[in-house]
Amino acid sequence: MYDTPKAETAVTSNEIKFSANNVDVYYGDTHAIKNVDVQIEANTVTAFIGPSGCGKSTFLRCLNRMNDTIDICRVEGDIRLDGEDIYDKKVDPVQLRAKVGMVFQKPNPFPKSIYDNIAYGPRIHGLAKNKADLDVIVEKSLRRGAIWDEVKDRLHAPGTGLSGGQQQRLCIARAVATEPEVLLMDEPCSALDPIATAQVEELIDELRSQYSVVIVTHSMQQAARVSQKTAFFHLGNLVEFGDTSKIFTNPEDPRTESYITGRIG
C-alpha cells in the first residue's frame, strides 16, 4: 500500500501563500489526486516532481482553478490563498487567475503582435488608465521576462514569429503583466532546447524575488537547480514534501529515493 502519509513538512521560513489541505481530484471515475496537503510559501520556488501521470500537473491546475474548464473534473478539499478558500462560491475564478498566473508547457503566444500579447491581460483587467501606462507596463513586463532587449525593436511583429525559447519567455512576461502574486509553471521548459532552458531557469530564479513560483518539472536537475522546496508526487499521492536540498540528498521515503536514483519513472 502506498497510502502512507506525506513526509514531515520542512520548517517554514516565509509567509504561507497557498495552503492546500485534504485535496482530492476526480476525473469522472478516476481518482487523480488523493488527499494531498501542501503549503506554498511566498518568494519561494516550489517544484512538483514525479513520474508521468502522477497528478502533479492536475494539482497545479487546481491552484488557479483551470480545472474548471474541464467538465468532468471535480475538486474536493480545502485550498486557501492568503487564507481565503479559492473554491468558495463567492470567488470568481477570473479574479483568482488574475492573482495566480500560469505558464504552460508549450509556448502559446496569441496570434497577435508581441505588444498585444503582453497588453492583453492588463487591458482586460483594466490595469492601465491610458496608452502611456500600458506602454510602461509592456516594457516592464518584457524586462521582467528577460526578453526586452531581443524584441524592443519589433514590438508590433507577431508573437508567433519568435523562437521557442523567446516565445516561452514572452508567455512568462505576459503572465507577469497582469501583476499576479503567484506564478504557476507547467513544465515550462519541456519544449525548449538547452540554451533556451537555461535562460528560462535563470529568469525563474529572478522572479522569485517578487512572486511565489510553483513549477512542475520532469527534470530533477531542473528542480534541484531552481527550487527551494520540492514535492514528490506518485500515483496521485504526495509522497514527500520538503526543502529541495533535503529531498535530493536525504529522502525519507523509499519511493522518492527510487525515483531520484532513476528506478521509477
Partner: peptide, 25 residues
C-alpha cells in the same frame, strides 16, 4: 485549446477569450 488556456490563465472570462482570442484567430 492552448490559446484558450493562455487567455483563461491570465484571468480572462470565457467571453473575453472568445471575443479577443478565439474569434480573431
Amino acid at each position: 485549446q492552448s490559446l484558450r488556456d493562455a487567455s483563461l490563465g491570465l484571468g480572462a472570462t470565457k467571453a473575453e477569450t472568445m471575443q479577443q482570442v478565439v474569434l480573431p484567430a
